[in-house]
Amino acid sequence: MGTSAGQQPKALDPFGIRLGEAVDRFGSVCVGIDPHAALLEAWQLPDTVQGLRQFCEIAVEAFGGQAALVKPQSAFFERFGAAGVEMLEDVLAGLREMGTLSLLDVKRGDIGSTMAAYAQAYLSDASPLRADAITVSPFLGFGSLAPAFDLARRTGRGVFVLAMTSNPEAGHVQHAMWGEETVSGTIVDEVAEANALARADSYGDVGMVVGATVGKDIADLGLAERLAQSRAPLLAPGLGAQGATIGDIGRGFGPAARLVLPATSRAVLSAGPDVAALRQALREVKQQAAALRPPAALD
């Protein structure tokens, strides 16, 4: 894998359109690249930069050109310092070279010039860390994310906003009331507004992160229909290792299930390090997930 930071990227179509085309071709599953220590050990690789490089080269070979969206988790690269960040640059470049959309899981969220700098780091055409989309946190106020939305719109990239995460601590904040609405409900409405001008037959460019395990919360808060109307691609982590199934997503998300991108990392990565075995594990998840998105699901 080689970096391409010196090349002038060509103009990109809007992210939602590119994502829809990728889902039509490869299915809706988002597969992660999470090189944490336990997986390196399971693959009989050292927990070193060299082990990280071998892990990433195998993962990019296995998933590039096979999935609609590949999600590297930045933290597992950052733990190696500068060499790890350089490896993350190589992973993103390798996915670009294979024509595979990348979603960089960084969960950034800040205010003013700091948020603008984060946007430049991951959404600018000139950045070696540029991805097709990133995850962001709205909990300093939805408006604080404006620099990321603005730059993503100009460069044809996407932004996935944390809305309803599956960790047990989340409800204390995300289900809190803001006036007559929950914080999560407010985020859903803000994302829907951001996607109001999206092409009718495509995803919007602004997505949400909604855990695959929070179906009961979606029902209790009455958010299923509003999620469906948001046109947001719904990244749903928690499939497999965290206990969620495709059936759980179908039942919990209701009419919004057609927008879900089921996200899996360990459940597929545990099949490594053999490339063929990794691809087979991904195929099996994609076959299961096909039921969530019937033909013409976005019409």
Rank of each mutant, 00 (worst) to 15 (best):
G238C: 09
V183C: 10
P273K: 00
G204W: 14
L234M: 07
R251Y: 12
Q174E: 15
P262Y: 07
A194D: 00
A224P: 14
S202H: 13
V268H: 01
V161T: 13
L234N: 09
V210T: 14
D201Y: 10
T186K: 13
L162T: 05
E169G: 12
D248G: 04
V159T: 05
A163S: 11
G171A: 14
A256Y: 03
S184R: 13
L162S: 08
A244C: 03
D274Y: 05
G158P: 05
V210M: 07
L221C: 03
V210G: 09
S202P: 04
P262N: 11
A194G: 04
R251L: 11
A263H: 07
G243Y: 06
A257M: 07
L223S: 12
S202Q: 14
S202V: 09
P237S: 09
G179S: 04
A267N: 01
A271P: 00
G171P: 10
M177E: 05
G207S: 06
T165R: 00
A267Q: 05
I218D: 05
Q288A: 12
V159W: 00
Q288N: 10
Q174G: 09
E181K: 14
H175E: 13
E193G: 08
V285N: 00
V214K: 10
F160H: 02
M208G: 12
A244E: 13
A198F: 04
T264F: 13
L292P: 13
G158S: 00
L269T: 09
L162F: 10
Q174D: 14
A267V: 08
A291P: 00
A236P: 10
H175G: 14
T213F: 04
A267E: 01
V209N: 09
L278P: 06
N195D: 00
G204T: 04
G215W: 02
G252D: 15
H175K: 12
A257W: 15
L239T: 03
A176L: 01
P255K: 13
A194L: 15
A194K: 11
A192C: 02
A219W: 11
V188D: 05
G211H: 09
P273Y: 15
L239E: 02
T186F: 06
V214S: 07
T213G: 03
A163C: 14
R279C: 03
R266S: 10
